[in-house]
Simulated assay, not measured.
Amino acid sequence: MIRPGNALLDAFIAGPDRAVQKWIDYFDAYDRLLSPWRGRALTFLEIGVQNGGSLMMWRDYLGPDARIIGVDVDPNCRAMTEHGFEIWIGDQADPAFWDGFKAAVPSVDVVLDDGGHTMRQQLVTFDALFPIVSNGGLFMVEDTHTSYFPSHGGGAPGHPGTWMARVKDLIDQMHAWYHAPIDTADQVMAAVTIPSITIFDSLVAIEKRRRSPPIALARGDGGHQKNPPAMDYIAMRRALRVPDGGV
């Protein structure tokens, strides 16, 4: 069920001659994730252009100040340059392609991977592009159910080398403050740059934002137990007998 007043659905409906397909649950998810970006100057990268309908939908939704870039392996997608979009033709599973892209586009605010959905494509794309996502930006991957499809390199839950296996690993890394060796926790990429990972059905959104080490604050002096005014993750670990060398 899509909530009334969904501006992305309005943009989807606005172009009946545009070839575009989205799972119905995506409209609420994307409106929730991307509504703060509407009307702003941002660089939005979509991998998977196909017929270009989604690029037009995103432009209608995000507004005229958005710089929208499309990437596809099909040279026919260059036709979308006639509509004012920047189009790159290349294989998203090729790290060398992304090296060339990043030399020309050193920073993006939002990445949407709606490409080929194979495990190699999704993993190579994340490894290549997450480092250039701006502070406060988003990295999103569609059709993550392919992690369970052997045809795309996936398999049953727990199958190694899938995108969803990487997401589960990132969740653990995001919490490295609480289990990694204390002297290395602040060197774990996800711990210092990923404050949230939002998982929807077949869609994952990873926020990138520089983080400080966790600290808990307390106020008020009522009650029979006194709380310290502040406790960092190191004090918490030691209070709970977590070894400094990690678990």
Results as ranks from 00 to 15, higher is better:
121 Q>F: 09
180 A>C: 11
144 T>N: 00
155 G>V: 02
164 M>C: 06
128 A>G: 12
162 T>G: 00
90 G>F: 12
115 G>E: 02
94 D>M: 12
197 I>C: 01
157 P>D: 11
96 A>V: 15
102 K>L: 06
125 T>M: 05
196 S>K: 09
114 D>S: 11
149 F>D: 14
98 W>M: 08
99 D>M: 07
193 T>H: 15
125 T>P: 04
195 P>W: 14
186 D>Q: 10
105 V>W: 02
162 T>V: 06
183 D>L: 05
140 M>Y: 07
106 P>K: 01
127 D>I: 09
193 T>P: 01
150 P>G: 12
110 V>M: 09
119 M>N: 00
153 G>M: 04
91 D>M: 13
126 F>H: 09
138 L>Y: 02
129 L>F: 02
136 G>T: 02
178 Y>C: 07
167 V>T: 07
92 Q>K: 10
190 A>H: 04
119 M>R: 06
170 L>N: 01
83 H>G: 07
157 P>W: 12
172 D>P: 00
153 G>P: 03
153 G>D: 03
153 G>Q: 07
155 G>T: 04
161 G>E: 02
110 V>D: 12
103 A>P: 06
116 G>M: 10
101 F>P: 04
192 V>E: 12
167 V>Y: 02
164 M>A: 00
112 L>K: 01
137 G>F: 06
185 A>K: 03
193 T>S: 14
142 E>T: 05
159 H>R: 06
103 A>R: 15
104 A>P: 10
102 K>H: 08
190 A>R: 02
162 T>I: 06
173 Q>M: 09
168 K>F: 03
133 V>D: 08
109 D>Y: 04
108 V>G: 07
136 G>Y: 03
127 D>G: 13
186 D>R: 00
84 G>P: 08
138 L>D: 02
153 G>L: 07
97 F>L: 13
84 G>H: 11
171 I>E: 13
169 D>P: 00
192 V>Y: 05
102 K>V: 13
186 D>M: 08
122 Q>T: 09
137 G>L: 09
170 L>Y: 02
190 A>G: 07
159 H>K: 09
103 A>F: 12
189 M>P: 12
154 G>W: 05
111 V>I: 15
94 D>S: 13
191 A>R: 05
120 R>Q: 15
183 D>S: 09
124 V>H: 03
107 S>Y: 07
187 Q>E: 15
180 A>M: 14
196 S>N: 15
164 M>P: 02
139 F>R: 03
197 I>V: 12
149 F>L: 11
146 T>K: 03
117 H>Q: 03
170 L>Q: 06
132 I>Y: 04
198 T>Q: 13
149 F>I: 03
99 D>F: 02
106 P>F: 00
137 G>A: 05
